[in-house]
Write a protein that binds this DNA or RNA. Sequence first.
DNA 1: GCCAACGTTGGC
DNA 2: GCCAACGTTGGC
Length: 137
Amino acid sequence: MNYWLVKSEPFVFSFEDLVRDGVTRWDGVRNYQARNNLRAMSLGDLCLFYHSNEGLAVVGIARVSKTFYPDPTATSGDWSAVDMAPVKAFTQPVTLAEIKKNPVLSEVGLVKNARLSVMPLRSDEFFTILDMGLTQL
DNA sequence: GCCAACGTTGGC
DNA sequence: GCCAACGTTGGC
């Protein structure tokens, strides 16, 4: 099991959209590092879903429901997509500010490389954010 | 192969 | 709306 964090601008595609749709194609990635991360995803891997630009918080958990295949939205180049399904919405969004405050999360890509849209998380990072997001059950 | 110019992302 | 960080492009 690997753990990931994916970013989406909520006015383009939000976690609520994912819950509504049930499954979505995670396409349009045009960055080699992010693409390689997509290709490293295994079936059932868990992804934290982060809202960029608006919200600025991790809002839920998704899982990989189909591993990588050629991105149908790519007109040229060697790009990949995966499918994702919702797992659970956070009861309390975990904001970027909170992530930056937590020393355990200082290596997280959101902090280290703000522009990367698909990044791996260590399991301790994943579960730390999970605890912060599901505290008010 | 280097590097300057440019475009894009995304936080503030 | 601004700007820093980063990736990509293209001239040499």
